[in-house]
């Protein structure tokens, strides 16, 4: 009857994973080492984000510069990686599009991960949806994988956009 114990073990492990995933999925995290993803030269000294600028900023990822060309938001950009077999991608798109319409100067760019595998490897994107939050300079400040909550997205943009949430035209 060892089969019964295997079933119990598998179900316990899967339940633990399921709850962990539910907890971690969609959480927006601070990007430890902000990456310059737009190819735009970081702003000058009078920039309000000057304090953040002292962070080490990695070199722009070439392929993304091409993809983002001309699609960068004036104040922030949400870059969403999606794939064909992805249940939460549609809901993520809906939320991000809604927020992009609501908050001025914020754009939403959706990238088909399968069409840009080099980029996916370079940025180490592991699952879809993954959302990268870029500031006005195109530097990645935050990221999330899984379906993010709308309130969290708005809060994250509030931290990225100079002036913060008061500056929002909601």
């Amino acid at each position: 009857m060892s089969g019964v114990w295997i079933v119990i073990g598998v179900l316990i492990a899967a339940t633990a994973f399921g709850f962990w995933n539910r907890w971690s999925s969609g959480r927006i995290k601070q990007t430890a080492v902000p990456r310059g993803l737009s190819g735009i030269t970081p702003a000058s000294d009078d920039d309000p984000l000057a304090d953040i600028e002292s962070d080490p900023v990695a070199a722009p990822v070439g392929a993304l510069v091409t993809v983002l060309d001309g699609r960068l938001g004036e104040r922030a950009t949400m870059v969403q990686f999606s794939s064909a077999f992805c249940q939460p991608c549609r809901a993520t798109r809906r939320i991000l599009e809604e927020v992009a319409t609501m908050v001025s100067g914020v754009s939403h760019v959706e990238i088909d991960a399968e069409d840009h595998l080099d980029l996916v490897r370079a940025l180490d994107i592991r699952r879809t949806p993954t959302v990268l939050f870029l500031d006005a300079q195109g530097i990645q400040r935050k990221h999330a994988s899984g379906l993010p909550r709308k309130a969290d997205v708005i809060a994250a943009l509030g931290e990225i956009i100079p002036g913060g949430p008061e500056d929002f035209a909601i």
């Binding site: 794939s83 064909a84 992805c86 991960a113 595998l117 996916v120 994107i125 592991r126 879809t128």
Partner: peptide, 10 residues
């Protein structure tokens, strides 16, 4: 399976 899909593609 869907979550592993992108890693598989990579």
């Amino acid at each position: 399976g869907c979550e592993m899909y992108l890693l598989g593609q990579r």
